[in-house]
Amino acid sequence: MAAIGQETKFRVEGMDCASCASKIDTLVRRMPGVQDVNVSISAGTLTVLHTSESNLDVIERKVTGLGYAVASLTAKSGAPASDQLADHDHRTHSHDKKLAGLHGNDDAPMSGPWWNSAKGRLTIASGVALAVAFAVHYMWPATDPWAFIAAMLLGLVSIARRAVMAAVAGIPFTIEMLMTVAAVGAVIIGAGEEAATVVLLFLIGELLEGVAAGKARSSIQALTTLV
């Protein structure tokens, strides 16, 4: 007889696209004791139906390992309400600190203007680096393609780290891995300029996804307060 499932909901910050949701869904479904998974991009939540033998701390650590901040929204049974709230705040703060050490916190939520976010700063820095690389290319052609390679690496490091994290978690085929392989391959065939440009465009796309997702969540939250 199958064990009766329990439902636990997590808040996931930095999940801005269908690819992010798919990675989290695939990872959590593979974990022991998990019966069903529901990932909501608009709400920024992960709902897991699991047996009592499931280790929720391991689920949080695995999802955090992909580069997202995770905190449980479901109260622990048997604990006083005040302890549950304090534990939730502590866990949220702890996960935010962990995320700050991952690839420049570029998947952190945007609580202010996009240019003040880590992802926004990385995109701006990559754009400036690419502009400098073009200037160096025209003024000192002998330095080609090293200026473009440096500009590419500035943006690619965070992407490659996420690709490796997902691969270690058992999800090797991700958009980050595809971008990493494509950029490195372009450099190998002598197309450093194209590699740096593609990496910048990828970062811009991610930034726009984050801005759009943040506005959508804000609109949904504002709507729920009116209902």
Rank of each mutant, 00 (worst) to 15 (best):
A3H: 03
I4R: 03
I4A: 03
G5S: 05
Q6W: 03
F10A: 01
V12K: 01
S19T: 09
S19W: 12
D25Q: 00
D25W: 00
T26K: 11
L27P: 06
L27R: 00
P32R: 00
P32L: 01
G33H: 00
Q35F: 00
N38E: 14
N38Q: 15
V39T: 08
S42W: 15
L49I: 04
H50F: 02
H50C: 02
S54T: 10
V58M: 07
R61Q: 08
V63Y: 02
T64G: 06
G65H: 08
L66F: 07
L73A: 04
T74W: 13
S77K: 11
P80E: 10
S82T: 09
D83C: 03
A86F: 10
D87N: 09
H90G: 02
R91P: 09
T92W: 10
T92Y: 11
S94W: 03
S94F: 08
S94I: 02
H95T: 09
D96W: 08
D96Y: 12
K97V: 04
K98E: 13
L99V: 08
A100H: 07
A100V: 01
L102V: 06
H103W: 13
H103M: 08
D106L: 03
D107T: 06
D107F: 05
P109V: 02
P109S: 02
S111A: 02
S111P: 02
G112I: 04
W115Y: 15
W115D: 14
N116K: 15
A118N: 14
A118L: 09
A118C: 09
G120N: 15
T123F: 12
T123D: 12
I124G: 09
A125M: 10
A129W: 11
A133N: 10
A133T: 06
F134N: 04
F134E: 04
F134R: 06
A135W: 13
A135L: 05
H137W: 08
H137T: 06
Y138M: 03
P141F: 09
A142R: 14
D144N: 13
D144R: 03
A147C: 05
A147S: 13
A151K: 14
M152R: 15
L154N: 11
L154P: 15
L154D: 14
L156F: 10
L156Y: 14
S158Q: 15
I159A: 05
I159Y: 05
A160C: 10
A163G: 08
V164W: 11
A166L: 02
A166I: 05
A166T: 05
A169M: 09
P172N: 05
F173D: 15
T174R: 00
I175Y: 10
I175G: 06
M177W: 12
L178K: 07
A182V: 04
V184K: 00
A186V: 05
G190R: 00
G190I: 03
A191L: 13
G192A: 13
E193G: 04
A195I: 08
A196I: 10
T197K: 11
T197Y: 14
V199W: 01
V199A: 06
F202P: 14
G205F: 09
E206M: 08
E209L: 07
G210D: 09
A212N: 01
A216F: 11
S218E: 15
I220V: 12
I220S: 14
Q221V: 04
Q221D: 14
A222W: 02
L223A: 12
L223Q: 14
L223W: 15
T225E: 10
L226M: 08
